[in-house]
């Protein structure tokens, strides 16, 4: 497979872990020629005040997103299954916290 010749710096999505023990969270995007440059620039743009201890950069085109037009049928199956929530069940008060 041939990679198409790059004409402009591609877009990268940036994920930052704010502290050890927490997940990486999406915080924005930027243009960079390659992954190493994207990391470097993400550090300068998104962690100028020690907002992170780790950064992920992902090419934006690598992300597959669900289609908002399918939101209904995609998420509808969960809508009528209230028995999946703990509050669906009534437990006698004397049982206490469960």
């Amino acid at each position: 497979m041939n990679t198409p010749a790059l004409k402009e710096w591609p877009l990268w999505e940036i994920f930052v872990r704010s502290k050890q023990g927490l997940e990486h969270k999406h915080c924005g995007s930027l243009h960079a020629a390659d992954a190493a440059q994207a990391l470097h620039m993400a550090r300068d743009v998104y962690t100028r005040r020690q907002e992170g201890v780790s950064i992920w950069v992902v090419p934006s085109i690598a992300i597959t997103a669900s289609n908002p037009d399918d939101k209904g049928e995609l998420f509808d199956p969960a809508a009528d299954k209230i028995y999946r929530h703990p509050t669906f069940y009534e437990i006698p008060e004397e049982v206490g916290h469960m």
């Binding site: 990679t3 790059l6 710096w9 390659d34 440059q37």
Partner: peptide, 17 residues
């Protein structure tokens, strides 16, 4: 600078291929 960064990336991609 922008051109050089792109040229470098292209070269890296070609080498990898």
């Amino acid at each position: 600078v922008r051109d050089a960064a792109l040229a470098y990336t292209r070269k890296q991609q070609q080498r990898a291929q």
